[in-house]
C-alpha cells in the first residue's frame, strides 16, 4: 500500500493539473490546419499549378491568415497576464519552444502576404496600384513563385511540428514526453487541411488529388499514433501509465470513438470507397477527419496535464 495525502489546494493545479483549457487545443488545431494548408498551397505553387485560375493556392493563404489569427486570438485569451503579451517580442529564448513558436508565427504572416500578392483582393489593387506591379513581376518570374512555394512549405512544416514540440518539450508530463508528438500533430494537421481543401476546392483535379492524399495521411497518422503509444508503453512506468489513459483509462472512450473511429478509420473507409468510385464523394468524411483532429488536440492536452510523476519516497 502506498498512499499520499497533501494539504495543497491550488486552483487549476489540484487535484489534477488543468491550467490549459479549450484555448490551447483550439490554437494547436488551427495551427495544425494552417500548417497543412501552407504545405498544400506551397506544393501547388511549387508544381506550377497557379496557372490554373481556380487553383486553391489562390484562396488558401486568405483562409490560413484568418485561421492563424483565430488561433493566435485563442492563445491570447489563454494568457493570464494579457497586458504583458508584448514581452514575447522583446526577447528570444533559445531553449523555449514557445518563444520559437511566437517568432515563427510572426514570420508566417509576411509569407502569407506574399502568397496573397499572387492574386491580391480587388479593393487593394484599386487603392494601391503598386500591388498590381508586384503581382505582375511575380507572375513574370515563375522561379520566384516556385521559391514562394518552397518557403511556404518550409514554414508550414515549421508551424506543424512546433505545435507538437511545444508539448513534448514539457517533460514533466509523461504523455507529452514523446519525440514523435511533432510528427503526429504535423500529419494530423496535413490530413485535416487536405480534408478541408477537398471539401472546398473548386478544381476537380485538386479535389480528387487531395482525397487520395488524405487517405495516405490518415494511414500514416494511424501508424504514427501506434508508434506514439508503443513508445510510451515501452518507456518508464509513468509514461506507460499515461498511454493506458488513452488505451483503457480515463480518456479511452473519447480517444477510440472520436480520434480513431470517427476521426480516422470511418472516414478512411468512406474515402477509399469514394476514390475507387464505389460511392460518391461526400463532405461527411472530410468533416469527420477535421473533427477527429480537433478532438485529438483536446484529448492530448487534457490527458497530458492529467499525467504526472509520483513524488514517492
Amino acid at each position: 500500500m502506498q498512499e499520499i495525502t497533501t494539504t495543497r489546494h491550488n486552483h487549476l493545479i489540484d487535484p489534477t493539473l488543468h491550467v490549459w483549457g479549450w484555448e490551447i487545443p483550439i490554437y494547436l488545431f488551427l495551427g495544425g490546419m494552417v500548417a497543412g494548408m501552407m504545405l498544400i498551397s506551397g506544393y501547388f505553387l511549387f508544381k506550377g499549378r497557379h496557372k490554373e485560375t481556380n487553383c486553391s493556392c489562390y484562396y488558401l493563404p486568405y483562409m490560413s491568415m484568418v485561421l492563424l489569427s483565430l488561433g493566435m486570438l485563442a492563445l491570447f485569451l489563454d494568457l493570464e497576464h494579457k497586458l504583458y503579451v508584448w514581452r514575447l517580442y522583446t526577447t528570444f529564448q533559445i531553449t523555449s519552444a514557445m518563444s520559437w513558436g511566437s517568432w515563427i508565427l510572426v514570420l508566417v504572416y509576411p509569407i502569407l502576404m506574399i502568397n496573397i500578392l499572387l492574386r491580391p483582393p480587388k479593393i487593394l489593387e484599386d487603392k494601391l496600384p503598386i500591388i498590381i506591379e508586384w503581382k505582375n513581376k511575380l507572375h513574370a518570374n515563375p522561379i520566384w513563385i516556385k521559391n514562394i512555394g518552397v518557403i511556404s512549405m518550409f514554414f508550414g512544416a515549421g508551424i506543424g511540428l512546433y505545435t507538437g514540440v511545444l508539448l513534448s518539450s514539457l517533460g514533466a508530463r509523461p504523455l507529452w514526453s514523446s519525440s514523435i508528438l511533432w510528427l503526429l500533430f504535423l500529419v494530423s494537421g496535413l490530413s485535416g487541411a487536405a480534408a478541408f481543401v477537398h471539401v472546398i476546392a473548386k478544381n476537380v483535379y485538386e479535389r480528387e488529388l487531395l482525397a487520395k492524399a488524405d487517405n495516405a495521411f490518415l494511414i500514416i497518422e494511424l501508424f504514427v499514433i501506434a508508434l506514439f503509444i508503443i513508445g510510451l508503453k515501452t518507456a518508464t512506468q509513468v509514461q506507460s501509465n499515461a498511454a493506458d489513459m488513452l488505451l483503457n483509462g480515463e480518456f479511452a472512450s473519447s480517444f477510440w470513438v472520436f480520434v480513431i473511429g470517427i476521426g480516422i478509420v470511418i472516414p478512411l473507409i468512406i474515402q477509399l470507397l469514394a476514390v475507387n468510385h464505389k460511392i460518391h464523394h461526400t463532405p461527411i468524411a472530410p468533416l469527420m477527419v477535421i473533427l477527429g483532429g480537433l478532438i485529438l488536440r483536446f484529448i492530448i492536452v487534457a490527458a497530458g496535464q492529467y499525467s504526472h510523476w509520483f513524488a514517492l519516497n
Binding site: 495543497r8 491550488n10 486552483h11 487549476l12 493545479i13 489540484d14 493539473l17 491550467v19 490549459w20 489563454d78 494568457l79 493570464e80 497576464h81 494579457k82 504583458y84 503579451v85 514581452r87 514575447l88 523555449s96 514557445m98 511545444l166 518539450s169 514539457l170 517533460g171 514533466a172 508530463r173 497530458g304 496535464q305 504526472h308 510523476w309 513524488a311
Partner: peptide, 27 residues
C-alpha cells in the same frame, strides 16, 4: 512578475506542480 505573460508553460513543465497562477495574472 512584470515579464510573466501567464502562458502557464512553466506550470505544465514542473514535475512538482509547485507553481500556480496568482489572481493578478502572473505565475
Amino acid at each position: 512578475h512584470g515579464e510573466c505573460i501567464g502562458c502557464k508553460a512553466c506550470i505544465a513543465s514542473c514535475p512538482y506542480d509547485a507553481r500556480y497562477v496568482h489572481p493578478e495574472g502572473y505565475v
